[in-house]
Every structure is written in structure tokens, then in C-alpha cells.
Computed example of a mutant assay.
Amino acid sequence: IPLVEAESPKPEETAEKGGEEAGQKGETEKEGGSSNVVLTFEKTILGETIKRELETEAGNGKESKMPDDTEQIWDNIKMTVTKLHGQWNDLEPMLVEKKVFPEAISNFEEALDSLTISITEHDYFGTLTAANELTGRLSKIMPPFADNPLPVATDLKYHLRKILLDVASADYNGAQESLNYMKEQNHTVTGSLQEGEKKAEALRTSLDNLQDALNERNPGLINIKAAIVMEELAGIIKDQQ
């Protein structure tokens, strides 16, 4: 399930009353009691990372391009989540038959419902977060249908996106926890591959570079290094297909 992507709000749509600059890091907009993180990456938090993921897994050398019109993006997202509900309706009985843990099934369904609500409300940051949570829950129901290391690689992609989302909300401790987990799982995801040690070293190097960027607390640099890690993970998944 691809993580959906949407454009960030325009500055005039996110600025607080009083003329405070909308682009400042960590600034929030409070309206009707809700709080939304004002996004600081160009166009989207996950844009470059998702682009690398799609291009590497497709392997056709074509550049991925997202629609420019915000309403078109939301319409596409709504159609996608509607299809997901239909697919989930078909998949759920199969998961029960395969004796997947009931908690994993209910957690996925809850994440899908949460994503649907965020999309309905046009909640940009909530949609990105909920969509990523859905991919994280996906890795927990994959084992009966996919050989290792696919479920682990899917889980690592979830944690990589979570790093970017945590950084966007200035939660560097949460980002570090996800990165620590990814480092621990390096050999798990590469051990069964041909040239596994070579791929493990490439992934380890990209994770170390991401760690350096995280230490600098530079969102732009973190975004670039995360995209390289995603390229490595997407390549591992492609090798298994």
C-alpha cells in the first residue's frame, strides 16, 4: 500500500492571527481547539523519500510526478482509501483463516478508519501520519503471504517515514528511537539476500549518514539522507519480488 502524498497548505492558509510567519519551524496553528503542525519542507515532508521509493521499486527509470492541484490530490487520496476499504473487506476473512493474531487485524482496521477520518477532514499532517501507521500495521499481517525479509523491510520503511514525521514535529527523541530500531534490524532484512553482506553494508552506511544528519537536527539534510535509505530498502524489496 503506497503512502499517499499531499501538498502542504499555502502560507496564508496556515498563518496564525496576529501576522506571525507561517513558515517558522515548530509553529502551530490553533483553530477551533485543534492544533496543526505548520510544515517546513518544500511541498511535502515525505516527497523526496516517496519519490525514491516508487522509482526504485518500479525500476523503469521514469521520474514520478505528483499532481499540482491540491483538490485533485485530495480526490485521488479519497478514491484510493475507498478502494482500500473494499480490498480490506476481501482480505480480512483470509487473515482469520490464516490465523493471523486478532489484535493485528483489529489494529490494521483501526488505522484504516483513522486514515479515512483524516482524509475526510483534509487534515494534511494527520493524513500523512495515519497513512504511515497503516503501512506499519500492514507489516504485522504480511507474514502468512510474504517471505522474509519483505515484512521486515516494510516495517523499516514505516520507521523511516516516522523519522521524517517526528522531525517535522520536532520530536527528535522519537526519531532517534526509530533509527535505533532500523540499525538493529539491518542484518535481519539483508541476511537472506544474495550478496547480503554487501547490501547490509550499503544499508548500514546510509543509516549512519542519516544518524549524522539527525545529530545535526537539520530537517533538510535529514530529508535527503532518508531518501537514500529508502532507495536501499526499496532495492531490497525489489530483489525479493
Rank of each mutant, 00 (worst) to 15 (best):
P2H: 09
E5L: 14
E5P: 12
E5W: 09
A6Q: 10
S8G: 13
P9H: 05
K10R: 10
E13W: 02
G18S: 10
G19D: 09
E20Y: 12
E20I: 10
E27D: 00
G32Q: 12
G33H: 05
S35G: 02
V37M: 03
V38F: 01
L39A: 02
T40C: 03
I45Q: 11
E48P: 02
I50K: 05
L54V: 13
T56V: 14
N60P: 04
K62N: 14
E63Y: 04
K65H: 03
K65Y: 03
M66R: 12
D68T: 12
Q72P: 08
I73E: 15
K78D: 12
K83N: 13
K83I: 07
K83C: 06
K83W: 02
G86C: 03
G86T: 00
G86R: 06
Q87K: 02
E97M: 08
K98T: 10
F101D: 11
A104M: 00
I105E: 12
N107G: 07
E109Q: 13
E109R: 14
D113W: 04
T120Q: 09
E121M: 08
F125I: 02
A131G: 15
E133W: 01
E133I: 01
T135E: 13
G136F: 01
G136K: 11
K140I: 06
I141K: 08
P144Y: 06
F145I: 06
N148R: 11
N148Q: 14
P149M: 01
L150T: 05
P151E: 04
P151C: 01
V152D: 05
A153M: 09
T154I: 05
L156I: 12
K157F: 05
Y158L: 06
H159I: 00
L164M: 10
L165V: 00
V167N: 04
A168D: 06
Y172M: 10
N173H: 05
G174N: 08
G174H: 09
Q176C: 00
K183T: 09
K183P: 00
Q185G: 07
N186T: 15
T190M: 11
E195Q: 14
E197H: 09
K199E: 13
A200I: 04
A200L: 05
A202C: 04
A202S: 15
S206A: 15
D208L: 02
N209V: 04
L210G: 10
L210D: 09
Q211E: 15
N218V: 03
G220D: 12
L221R: 14
N223M: 10
N223G: 14
M230Q: 08
E232R: 15
I237L: 10
K238S: 08
K238I: 11
D239P: 02
